[in-house]
Design a protein around this nucleic acid. Structure first.
Length: 191
DNA sequence: CGATTTTGACCGGCGC
DNA sequence: GCGCCGGTCAAAATCG
């Protein structure tokens, strides 16, 4: 927890992949989330549409092909320190606002395998959405990275994956070249 | 048998 | 102060 901040997941290989098809810059920006008037966790979304080529991004087994990623840098204000039990963190040290990054993906499956191992720890129904939202946490010890997967009610074909925190350990699985893509995504979103 | 999912309860924040 | 709401916990169930 709170172990982000410039800590890159120094993966063995793919240290400096120069040209990746992940163009997180450019394209039109459209806000898809902030449709409701309620206080959303997303503020000022900037979805960039980058048409990924039909690479062998074989995630689970069917996964998505020809999907369109939309990165979203979110300057959230999520800073809560509740935690009744578990590791007693220092109190009132610094309100760290964990950066969250939302990725909009066009896929048929909810679970996009990004190479890390996740354990589901919750699921809640979302308002204005008949699809539930799933909460996952990285099973790596000391890695408090969380992510939540949600499906747009408007477009059931679109899956929004919101990452919270930064991995500080290498990826477990060698998910083909998707590892490179994931690395790039983290680098770009390391802001 | 260990790891993970499921699911309702619980908790803190915020709006009224 | 109360109730809603989003997020998390934890015990039981399920999976491999």
């Amino acid at each position: 927890m709170e172990n982000y901040g410039g800590v890159f997941p120094c993966s063995s290989s793919a240290s400096s992949a120069p040209q990746l098809s992940l163009n997180v810059l450019d394209s039109n920006a459209y806000s898809e989330f902030q449709a409701a008037d309620k206080s959303h966790g997303f503020l000022g979304l900037t979805a960039n549409d980058m048409g990924l080529p039909n690479s062998e991004v074989n995630l689970m087994n069917d996964a998505c092909r020809g999907q369109s990623f939309a990165s979203t840098v979110t300057t959230d204000q999520t800073d809560r320190e509740m935690k009744s039990s578990s590791s007693g963190k220092k109190k009132g040290e610094k309100k760290i606002r964990k950066p969250r990054f939302a990725f909009e993906t066009r896929s048929q499956v909810d679970i996009l395998d990004d190479g890390y191992r996740w354990r589901k720890y919750g699921q809640k129904a979302v308002k204005n959405n008949r699809f539930p939202r799933s909460y996952y946490r990285c099973t790596h010890q000391g890695c408090g990275v969380k992510k939540q997967v949600q499906r747009l009610s408007k477009d059931e074909a679109v899956v929004v994956t919101t990452y919270e925190g930064m991995h500080s350990h290498p990826i477990e699985k060698s998910t083909d070249n998707f590892e490179h893509i994931l690395n790039q995504m983290q680098i770009y979103t390391a802001f």
